[in-house]
Write a protein that binds this DNA or RNA. Sequence first.
DNA 1: GATGAATGAGCTTTCATTCAT
DNA 2: CATGAATGAAAGCTCATTCAT
Lengths: 203, 203, 203, 203
Amino acid sequence: MNTKDKKLSKREKNKENNRSIIIKAGIHTFLKKGISQATVRDIIRNTDLASGTFYNYFKSKEEVLIAALDESAIEIGQELRSRRKNAKNLEEFIYSQINPFFEFARDHSELFMIMSSNLNDVKAFSVETPMMTLELESLKEDIIIGINEGILPDVDPDYFCSVIQSVSEGIAFTFVKGGMSDEDISAAVKFCTNFIVNGIKAV
Amino acid sequence: MNTKDKKLSKREKNKENNRSIIIKAGIHTFLKKGISQATVRDIIRNTDLASGTFYNYFKSKEEVLIAALDESAIEIGQELRSRRKNAKNLEEFIYSQINPFFEFARDHSELFMIMSSNLNDVKAFSVETPMMTLELESLKEDIIIGINEGILPDVDPDYFCSVIQSVSEGIAFTFVKGGMSDEDISAAVKFCTNFIVNGIKAV
Amino acid sequence: MNTKDKKLSKREKNKENNRSIIIKAGIHTFLKKGISQATVRDIIRNTDLASGTFYNYFKSKEEVLIAALDESAIEIGQELRSRRKNAKNLEEFIYSQINPFFEFARDHSELFMIMSSNLNDVKAFSVETPMMTLELESLKEDIIIGINEGILPDVDPDYFCSVIQSVSEGIAFTFVKGGMSDEDISAAVKFCTNFIVNGIKAV
Amino acid sequence: MNTKDKKLSKREKNKENNRSIIIKAGIHTFLKKGISQATVRDIIRNTDLASGTFYNYFKSKEEVLIAALDESAIEIGQELRSRRKNAKNLEEFIYSQINPFFEFARDHSELFMIMSSNLNDVKAFSVETPMMTLELESLKEDIIIGINEGILPDVDPDYFCSVIQSVSEGIAFTFVKGGMSDEDISAAVKFCTNFIVNGIKAV
DNA sequence: GATGAATGAGCTTTCATTCAT
DNA sequence: CATGAATGAAAGCTCATTCAT
């Protein structure tokens, strides 16, 4: 029994281990070669595992990507959605999006860079990612609601949506690329929020 | 003489024809599968030609892309650069970029979509494209000059650069995707310019 | 343990098996079509294996050739070189080369035929083969040394070198082609040695 | 009439011209890349002609080679055969072969190098070349006749044949490669003849 | 579950050859 | 005859995926 347990736990451990080894190698590969150029072979080459082992855990490189994004990316999506519901005015609305988005970018910079550099490919799997969330219909709907409720200024919702998305992605990208410190992030968030809020107000 | 001319032109015509057939198929393929996923075979499959024929015209899919971008894309890059040199203030500076950029997006919407959706891959060829130009060091340098000369407000040049780029791409993308009319473009340009100018002024 | 060993050895055996199947098919192909005309596909066609399998073992047809020549061919080159160092006179010098060379030709007749019929191509890989050794500068240098030491007659070294090479290859080729028996080889060696020794003495 | 004649002769001229242009390019290509590696494309690339033009004159690269060897190579074959018929003893027999063979090698060094470096491929077309002639059954038959008539020593005809062939080719190759002067050729012929005659006598 | 050899589809590219002009 | 674009077979090679061990 003892022996069996040990074996089992070892196995379990190993299983988890291999799974996360593959995910790590996947992130590394996606970052280096881009999603569409990365191959299953590339991923396992960044590993001590045999090629067959890959298929014990994932059916394709896309599944690795999804696993890599997994929780964190999904959570942030939900967070963004729920936070903006509570916004009472434009400033709050924008800030509610920008702040967590930048924190995500800072805390998961590798994932962020992958998504940001491969938006097109990421779109291909209808994965829920923060970018996706910012972009998807959901944001637009909330904007329309906000406009109707008088909380948000009456701006073309498509363009409204587009600027939030593009500015936050652009600034976050610049922020992450230039090595990010703690002061930086609040400066970046402030810059980004101010820029969008005042830009929107002026149009 | 007449006969000869006709013969020649028939051939030449066919040659030109095939060349543009391939380019068209290329654009179609790049649009559909993305640049890095598209293969030479994909391109010729969108064609009645034999595989060998491709290589009578191009050495690689990249050459097809370059041919597709060709003049128009190169010209716009130069235009953007020269126009911003003459700007006397922030409004002019931004407008000098946004207006021609949107016109390019409208007039070459397929190319624009390809470039916009494959920025990463396009970067790989050091082709001069409008995105590239907006993005490259050149823009940043001109911004720094403008700041020093007091023409532009004193904003972090990296962020300055980033917002111009991301907003114009984002709005132009939205604009193009939503079928573009003539009224739309001036509205889009106005929106975009106003947004950036006032956003920048506020930060 | 036994089981595991067996399993392993079965696999290993199969791997070794395939490797030598490919080498054999390679030899067959090189013999039939010549080295430069042989293709990887020709080699695998002489096999029940799939095309991809080839590349599990070799990177190119050249690697197959090298594997085929492998040890034996390299050893004989070294042997020829070391033996002639000990020669005390012309007879010994010639015999030291001819005898092992013919034994090699007899014992590896297929390889010998391939090399002999594709000297030009074999030269292209700087593989050490008996022909190469006989031909290379090394032989010429030793001849010059031998002449200077008075061990060998004072004959133009280029021609000296050339006759050793051409006669031994020519006779060995004839010898191998005409199905070789044990009496034959000593007769052939004797013929060859006598011929060269006396030819050289007379010029 | 005049006009027609002119046109015709011009055409004829051009025809001959293109033919020899292709042959020249062929020789150049065969020398540089070897027969089996040379392609029709290689040959026409060394030419200002269009690819289709090639097929107005030749069906394959092999036909170019045959045309290149043509007369000269065929003549020398016949000469060698006829000369050795008149030999009264070993010396004459050998000299009758060696002398014209070396002259051929000197006067057609490019062809000689091609044949000598591509013996295997040349054999593939059963073209009559000097090498072929020296090698073919014909020489062996004449040697047997010579032995029976007491003109030649009683040496194994296969080996007899082989040494004539290999030595003359080997020395001629060395001779041609080392830039050939007029003194050289008689020295080379003398060396070669002496070597073979005395070698043969001794076995 | 781990392994990695085997597989064959599919890609890029070159080539000999044809044929309308 | 000269031309050279079109053709499709065939080469080299890589890949995702399977499966016996």
